[in-house]
Design a protein around this nucleic acid. Structure first.
Lengths: 246, 246
DNA sequence: AAGTGGTCTAGACCACTCT
DNA sequence: GAGTGGTCTAGACCACTTA
């Protein structure tokens, strides 16, 4: 039931309860979900609060509503990997693999023009670069070249860089990551990449460039990641948007 | 101003107005956005309606709210390509290119096991397959192998298949596309692909598999698309999600 | 006609940030 | 203390679906 003395908002508590019910498998695909009226009475809360909790489940694709008909369970998948920004460590952990990293280098450097543009550094300003081999269950999966602004880099230099960068930034530095722009391409492995990933040269590589931004709009990381094509598939779930004004 | 006699919801109208103001450039990055109080008075509507309109702008990353501080303009980008499900034609059009398609083949066929699984066809049931070369400004960009359930395929066979498939499904067949699961990999071009895209063999290819679903949860399309790596980059914007319950 | 979700109101109290 | 956004209530009317 709901705890009204908790600092956690009621709609948040209700969302967690409903999510658990869906994921437990008690409700099967296509089953009718409790109506708003039912939820209002069962938890003794107002309709707007119910709607706020249900809205998130609908938005995340677990429920499907039809006006005048009802609310229905879309699917009972445990992993509903929507298009969320996750770091390598988080992504591997969610797939049930154990992530790790081997630090190749970490230093302040003069950014190339792409890095400078993406991180919006002043002319002549240095950035922090670290190169890491990312592993899953001990197997090399990707080569990662991360760049951060100078001030953030100075803090990072005093940390263990073989773990999750995003946890470090959020939990230790209090940076609120908010969104990222990604570009994904297919390329052939070069000498440097193939050596670090333990693969042949001239094999296909999934190449991702990502710029991550904090809640205030400031870029906090620009990363180039080269994934072994034989070990990694990029998966994403997309939502259709209304197409009225286009 | 708002039109209360319109069938369009007030929060929708307000969203459109505010979006226009942001995109017009009148508000610059970092500028303070009108407070909820101001918007309530200016448009003579209640706070919840204001919040509903603003919430979408926040969710789409155009605004940034900070409790006790205010609402601020994140950026004045015209194209905020969030992670939305778009077809090839829509995507190219949004990049300012003219999309087209050359039909290679279109037929009913026995699905392979992947296609049958993704489209959830009954054993022995046929599916509709069409193979198309997708062009942008007359240049071949991708080779597309689309599969649809039998009933949908029968309708498609009577249509012009060299245009946008999603428009056809939504506008002509009344199918509400809702979401899709995608997998993106890097592979090497095979003989069939390189011939149709006019490229050398053994060059890298961005390979995407996508299953698209309607609002009722039914799969309506499974597509394999092979993109020329030298002409196409997959771009996406991701939002960070709260990481409390994981 | 009854039940559902979609929209909207006019209040209320709280947590947070700034001055 | 004043102003902001965050949460919550108890109603209301409407549009749509099903029977």
């Amino acid at each position: 039931m709901l705890d009204r003395s908790s600092p956690v908002p009621l709609y948040h508590q209700l969302h967690a309860i409903l999510l658990k019910e869906i994921q437990s498998g008690a409700l099967k695909q296509g089953d009718a979900f409790p109506t708003e009226q039912e939820l209002m009475e069962r938890y003794a809360i107002s309709r707007m609060t119910v709607r706020q909790a249900v809205a998130r489940l609908v938005h995340d694709g677990l429920l499907h509503r039809q006006q005048g008909h009802g609310t229905f369970v879309r699917c009972n998948v445990i992993e509903q990997e929507l298009s969320t920004l996750t770091g390598f460590s988080e992504e591997m952990a969610s797939r049930g693999l154990t992530p790790s990293a081997k630090l190749v280098s970490a230093q302040m450097m003069q950014p190339d023009s792409t890095v400078a543009t993406q991180l919006r550094t002043a002319p002549g300003e240095m950035v922090f670069q670290m190169i890491r081999v990312r592993l899953a269950d001990g197997e090399p999966i990707a080569l990662d070249l991360s760049h951060c602004p100078r001030d953030l880099g100075e803090k990072l230099q005093q940390e263990n860089l073989e773990g999750a960068l995003y946890s470090l930034m959020e939990d230790k530095f209090g940076i609120k990551l908010d969104w990222a722009d990604q570009a994904i391409q297919a390329i052939l492995a070069d000498e440097f990449t193939s050596r670090h990933l333990g693969i042949n040269k001239r094999v296909p590589i999934l190449f991702m460039e990502r710029t991550a931004y904090a809640a205030d709009g400031r870029p906090v990381e620009f990363t180039r990641t080269l994934y072994r094509a034989d070990r990694y598939v990029y998966r994403i779930r997309l939502k259709r948007k209304p197409r009225s004004s286009s």
